[in-house]
Design a protein around this nucleic acid. Structure first.
Lengths: 141, 141
DNA sequence: GTGGATGCAAAGAATTTGCAACCAA
DNA sequence: TTGGTTGCAAATTCTTTGCATCCAC
């Protein structure tokens, strides 16, 4: 597991490599992403930054930028809104999300390779997948 | 594979069983769902009904009703909007969706049981999953 | 007849776009 | 200096809600 410090620096490097500027809002947003152990909505990230420090629009724009560089992964949830988290390149995992409190926990291991191969056989390229599990957690029952 | 005719009748039976009324808009919407071989957005279903026949709001309300009965399954897509399709109870499958033309194809087989068991061990109940694959299809390349 | 269903309008939530001012390189 | 970034406002897109009218049972 990479250290938080390094994750932050790595992300900054990615930004520089792609010729994006390292600005205050971007550093603050990255810090929130690095510090969080679960995927967060744009709104929530904005709130954590302190609602008056930076604009929600800037959060959205930067999340999009981060995603395009591969720093961040975007998860489309059941409810229709997106969650964002740092791209953990080391290994691939999914989440189990509580329908009630929306808390998300990691689930290691992924068995979707077979389906991806199937998709490739159908002629699809650049195949990725989005897999989220939903349930009701113990606390909400 | 159940015949389209039967799927339609089965869905009507479900409606009646749950004490919902069998109305014109509901029958028309069900017909579109039965006839489609891919998941459709509410907007698209509405268009297929003939935009002037029934209200989009009615489409949304009935899709929600259908989903609550289990007639219909709702898929949250990468773009944030939902697609709906008839619930094929016989077996469980997923889709590969083209990022460009948004065409969806079925992928048989599903290997997510292991992850669901993992989630159950974490104390989650009523566990379901949403898995969609995204790629670029041959035609769009 | 009556309560559930519909249509229209309007609200709501999440996200995107336009544009002038700003600041990192 | 200057083109990428930001903040504010406004627009968009998808979906939901309120309410009077309507029709399936």
């Amino acid at each position: 597991m990479t250290e938080p410090e390094n994750k932050f620096e790595e992300a900054l490097s990615s930004l520089k490599r792609e010729r994006y500027r390292v600005t205050g809002p971007r550093k603050a947003l990255l810090k929130q992403l690095v510090d969080s152990d679960k995927p967060l909505a744009a709104e929530e990230l904005h709130a954590r930054l302190g609602p008056d420090t930076h604009d929600l629009v800037t959060v959205y724009r930067n999340l999009e930028t981060f995603e395009s560089i591969g720093i961040v992964i975007r998860i489309a949830t059941e409810s229709g809104k997106s969650l964002y988290e740092l791209n953990a390149e080391e290994h691939h995992y999914h989440h189990i999300i509580c329908r009630k409190c929306h808390r998300a926990e990691k689930l290691e291991h992924c068995e979707v390779e077979k389906l991806e191969q199937l998709a490739a056989k159908l002629g699809f390229t650049e195949v990725k997948h989005v897999l989220e599990l939903y349930g009701v957690c113990e606390a909400c029952r």
